[in-house]
Simulated assay, not measured.
Amino acid sequence: MRVFSSVVLPAFVTIALSVTASASQAAPVKVFILCGQSNMEGKGAIKHLEQLLADPATAKAYQHLRNDNGWIERNDVFIKYNDDRGQGKLGLGYGTPTNRFGPELQFGHVVGNAFDEKVLIIKCAWGGRALAVRFRPPSSGKGDYTQRNRETKELEPLPEETYGEAYRDTIRIVKETLAGIDQVVPDYDPQEGYELSGFVFFQGFNDIIDQKKMDEYGQNLENLVRDVRKDLDAPKLPFVIGELGQQGVEPEKRYAQKHFAFRKMQEDVSKLPEFTGNVAFVKTSPYIVKDGESFDGGYHYYGRADTFFNIGNAFGEAMVKMVKSN
């Protein structure tokens, strides 16, 4: 962060300083953090993506992902995935497992096309993590959940270090990546620097299946936004909340009430006065294809490439709108 004093300077000196500052800040790398559980890890089947590209009826939407030489990697968008799941130019190969992809793919294309600056995506995602437990933000304090002892079969309190484990890992990975950003972004210029430009949180399944965790989800999500901004020293960091839309626009009747209530909690956080214009709730349920081929059983949005592509696109468009408006 650059700090300028309030001392009055001669006009020509002020102009010179202004030009110098503008030049040095002309093209900072835009950094976006994508965080969540298994759907953010990415379950879109590359096999399905190949089918979509082979079908003339659908190929046009995906043609920017491949050329005659194979799958395209962008020269202006880079990615770092967790500690050990790879880094490099944005392309395929950053899902879990590696024959899958997640929202990062089309998100990266959207933000890469929208900004002249280079882009770095830091992806922090682990399956099976609840916001009430492992993603628990510091402001929520310690939870009071239990686990069953494998030997005695008795319930016992979760170890204290379990709470916030994924949250702390996310903050750590972001800070470590930025400290060594020249190892991820080729030809990185420290004079131009980087700027934290946005955070996407796509998570919720492990909370909705436990009523106690669901009941505190709204407050935990509020705290997550505030704590991320505080711990990354980015007070107005644009924040996208991805809807838990697994059941589609019309969930099964036996689950509908719970899913609609959960989605409302997510959306209500984005409507808080302090978050107006800098937190966006993005629906993912419209991209569910229930009557098509499934590539992941009934889980993870059926593992469909078109669904994960469209979710990434929606996240990207919402993020670009916030960044440009701010």
Rank of each mutant, 00 (worst) to 15 (best):
M322W: 09
V320H: 04
R66K: 15
I209S: 07
K324T: 15
G143L: 06
K253T: 07
A125P: 02
D231C: 03
L232C: 11
F201C: 07
E154Y: 06
Y62H: 06
G198T: 11
A114R: 07
I288W: 00
L105S: 11
V29T: 12
N67D: 15
Q211Y: 03
E165A: 11
N206A: 10
S6W: 00
L9N: 04
K123V: 08
Q63R: 13
S325M: 15
Q63D: 13
R168L: 07
S38K: 08
R263M: 12
D296E: 08
I208G: 07
V320M: 08
Y81F: 15
Y217Q: 07
A16W: 00
L131V: 14
S6K: 11
Q106V: 08
R100P: 01
K258H: 04
A61W: 01
G127Y: 03
Y301G: 03
E176V: 08
A57T: 14
K153G: 06
N113D: 15
F12Y: 09
M1T: 05
V249Y: 00
E192G: 13
R148M: 14
D182S: 14
Q203I: 14
N220R: 05
C35P: 00
K89V: 07
A256R: 12
T177V: 07
Q211P: 00
K60N: 08
T276Y: 02
D215K: 11
R148T: 15
K213D: 04
A59C: 07
D68M: 03
F239S: 09
A16S: 14
P138D: 02
D227N: 05
E192L: 14
K30T: 12
R134P: 01
F295V: 08
E165I: 05
Y167Q: 01
K212I: 01
P186V: 11
D210M: 04
M265L: 15
H259M: 15
K80S: 09
V77G: 05
E161V: 08
G180F: 01
L196I: 05
V29N: 09
K236F: 02
A21H: 06
E222W: 02
E267D: 13
E274I: 13
A261C: 05
I181P: 02
L237I: 04
E160M: 04
E156P: 02
V8T: 14
H300I: 01
E317Y: 00
D215R: 06
R229C: 11
Y301V: 04
I173L: 10
W126L: 13
P238W: 01
P190V: 12
V119W: 03
K80P: 02
L52Y: 01
T96I: 10
Q247D: 13
N39Y: 04
A27V: 11
G245R: 05
A305C: 08
S197K: 08
A57L: 13
Q266V: 09
C35L: 02
Q37I: 11
A23D: 05
N206R: 12
V249W: 00
H48R: 01
E267V: 14
S294P: 01
A23K: 10
P238D: 10
N149E: 07
A11F: 00
A59W: 04
P138N: 03
V323S: 11
K253L: 10
D189I: 11
Q203W: 05
E151V: 14
N278G: 02
K230A: 13
S24C: 02
N206E: 09
T152W: 07
P138A: 07
A166K: 06
F4I: 11
G108I: 05
F101M: 09
K264W: 03
V323Q: 11
D55G: 14
